[in-house]
Amino acid sequence: MSIFDPSRRKFIQTTAASTGAIITAKLTTDAEAKSVLKPKQVTEPAKVNILLRVNGSEHQLMVDPRMTLLDALRERLQLTGSKKGCDQGQCGACTVIVDGRRIVSCLTLAVMQEGHDITTIEGLGTPNNLHPMQAAFIKHDGYQCGFCTPGQICSAVAMLDEVKAGMPSHVTSDLTRSPKMSAIEFRERMSGNICRCGAYSNIQDAIAEVAGERT
């Protein structure tokens, strides 16, 4: 088997950039091609009238089809509990529950969610009437800055339902059996929710407490 490194000579010729010298015209056509070459399609899209069902209430909205579900919740319905941490499906802070399933609301368009039941963090509980998962997060200090927290909680609530429904995960040892309510299962299943403050150990304690009460 040959392992060679073609990047040094052969490949470098095919790349547009080189270091050092001043690059002028060439660069403009390469790196900035996107803006120089095709400023077309400058139209305003037709707005779409949709009915969004969120936390049990129906909302009639005229939306730009480009609007994500996350932005519709935040900017139109003022449900700002769902957070925009990355807007790329890479952090989980925008997690909401749609028809019982957790999804990232930044990677779906609002227009695609008509007819679905959407639950956000605001629909789970309020400061004076906390959902058990919210109460467990407080008790176990399952958060620090709090920014990922609504997504963590929505995710945790729906995640426990997934385990209960017998859905397997990456760490389920025997696929033919139902998964266990265990820390290793919860850790794997919650991995789509990043907490940069690093409250994971405490979040796991919170989830374990709620799971224990349920089983």
């Binding site: 449900l79 700002t80 509990g81 769902s82 956000t120 963090i121 605001e122 789970l124 509980g125 309020t126 400061p127 004076n128 906390l130 919210q134 109460a135 997060f137 407080i138 008790k139 200090d141 958060y143 709090g146 927290t149 609504p150 909680i153």
Partner: peptide
């Protein structure tokens, strides 16, 4: 427990 906990866990902070 954090006094800001009820706001942070309900998305109202």
């Amino acid at each position: 427990s954090r006094i800001d906990g009820p706001l942070k866990t309900t998305g109202t902070a």
